[in-house]
Nucleic acid binder design. Structure first.
Lengths: 234, 234
DNA sequence: GAGTGGTCTAGACCACATC
DNA sequence: ATGTGGTCTAGACCACTCT
């Protein structure tokens, strides 16, 4: 639909299939423009995408180069993710819903979700499994006004798909704080964390593209299962 | 030096000082172009920066809006970071260098750093403090060929400043894995982690803009001190 | 000096949101 | 229907690298 994305996709494919070899120089901007029948600005925008993805490097006065294979594989495949379902597309991600109710927000929660105190919000607890192995425990809070008609089916599959695909909302970003907290009874029971051993907690706030907070959640993990990968591109 | 960055800086400042109020609409692209005496394309590039930083939202057909204060403070000040020095600009970050030597890379290390086996690499151990409080323990490996002339002074201040400011290299991205590992003797001694309690480890690989790996490091933390903030913008 | 990317302008036309 | 941001073109000029 959009030209510069099409071009980026095409060049990405050519890099992946080694039409453009790793470590090799790409044709000059000028030539690429001619090939794709587009303007310099459009081509620049296309290549910018690939630069951000870490596939190519551009050096003023030198040229555009495909990064070599080893470097590539390391930066690849760790895209900014959504929920667990999207993070582990190749694994079976399942959930046991432990709690699904609507509560009215107390002061703290109202503050986190940026809604008025007393507003109705979903309160969800899910025990999550990856390939049938216990993975973590989630406490999720979402304003009912922003995410209407949430059903238990959505909790059993992917809440994020419901938000993006069914409600047509755009998730702009996620803010996380990873730290540790004293473990509680559910952590002991379901995650098997021993008494007096802290749980690793991810405190998460999700924002829609209009800046509205749609989610506040706490996820608990046993330290043995905990693994979080992140890529920071500057 | 570059116009669109100047414009972005100026608008950012205006947002921070509430010249443009939170939640408010910004002047139309058209008006901004006139104000800054620039072209639409240039203005778009400037605003794009602020969108990525999460300060503003643009909606086709509607306008450009400053995110409201609450949303902002949460997303702000947690920029993609470099080292500790840049992450905590307001705190006193110090280091005690425990080890600083050059070793020759064994197979594993050569693989991580993407250098030939036997190449010389720095081996650094630093105990890091924030406001004089023990923060974590770093094991850093960097190829001597890429980061020449590293001195102990750089270790005591900021290695990343040396790389970017003195060597003039550009850091493109950082790849991290956060997980837990059994604690070792240095963890017990310096971080005060009890025996049989795991340490939280961040395994990190740093890439320059040309795709070269310049750093492989392991950082250990006591769970009480551990806190990692991350923002994912989609 | 020649090659190559980066910035900027002026202006046409399109897509979407709100009224 | 109008307002607003998004895409695209054509072309000028600048900054850096390589040799």
């Amino acid at each position: 639909m959009v030209k510069y994305i099409d071009i980026a996709d095409d060049i990405r494919k050519k890099i992946e299939t080694s039409v453009y070899e790793h470590g090799q120089k790409l044709p000059y901007e000028y030539v690429l423009c001619a090939n794709y029948r587009c303007n310099k600005t459009t081509m620049k925008k296309a290549l910018e995408i690939l630069v951000k993805e870490g596939l190519i490097v551009r050096r003023r006065g030198a040229g555009t180069f495909v990064k070599d294979a080893d470097t590539l594989t390391k930066l690849q495949g760790e895209q900014p993710f959504h929920g667990l379902t999207q993070t582990y597309p190749k694994s079976k991600v399942s959930s046991r819903v432990i709690e699904f109710e609507v509560i009215s927000a107390d002061e703290t929660l109202a503050h986190h979700l940026h809604v008025e105190q007393g507003s109705f919000v979903y309160h969800i607890i899910r025990h999550r499994f990856i390939d049938d192995k216990s993975y973590g425990l989630e406490y999720i809070f979402m304003p009912i006004s922003i995410i209407p008609d949430l059903k238990i089916e959505h909790l059993q599959t992917s809440i994020y798909s419901y938000i993006e695909d069914d409600l047509g909302l755009t998730i702009h970003g996620i803010h996380k704080i990873i730290h540790t907290v004293p473990s509680g009874s559910l952590d002991h029971e379901l995650l098997g964390i021993p008494e007096n051993v802290p749980a690793i907690e991810i405190e998460q706030v999700g924002y829609l593209s209009n800046g509205v907070v749609f989610e506040y959640s706490l996820s608990h993990f046993h330290y043995e299962n905990f693994r979080q990968t992140l890529v920071t591109l500057l």
